[in-house]
């Protein structure tokens, strides 16, 4: 996988979540994602960015335009140094929430992506990677 363009944004406030959405939107347009796919990846980004802020205590997102052969994609890597997730399998279930949300953040975002990966270590933090291929 080639990385054609990369940019890192901070997630420290509610306004930052809006900025992440807008950044992802610009890049999704740039690689020519279909309208529905654009909406999917922006929505997924919004969900995970909110998790990063609310549960991870803030962090960063790296927004990459990637390619494999002629296929282009958008990859988002969210990083926080928060408390981590003790039971990832449970966190990925629909309806599970440790905060006041509807518990759709992780599982919902996963359904909106082509590829989804989550790694977490209790006490160290969480990394969530999303890819949407064209």
């Amino acid at each position: 996988m080639n990385i054609e363009k990369t940019e890192t944004l901070n997630i420290r406030s509610g306004e930052d979540i809006v900025r992440v959405r807008q950044n992802v939107r610009t890049k999704a347009l740039a690689i020519g994602l279909s309208l529905v796919d654009q909406t999917r990846i922006i929505t997924a980004a919004s969900e995970i960015a909110r998790n990063t802020l609310d549960y991870g205590g803030g962090g960063t997102v790296q927004v990459d335009i990637v390619s494999v052969s002629v296929r282009k994609g958008l990859r988002l890597i969210f990083n926080d140094t928060g408390p981590g997730i003790p039971d990832i399998a449970r966190a990925l279930e629909d309806g599970y929430t440790s905060g006041g949300g509807m518990g759709l953040g992780l599982s919902g975002a996963k359904r909106l992506c082509s590829e989804f990966d989550i790694r977490s270590e209790v006490g160290k933090g969480t990394t969530v990677t999303l890819i949407r291929w064209k």
Partner: peptide, 14 residues
Amino acid sequence: MRPAVAITLVELGL
């Protein structure tokens, strides 16, 4: 509600 938004919401589980 726009079509793309509606599809995404359904997939999100809402």
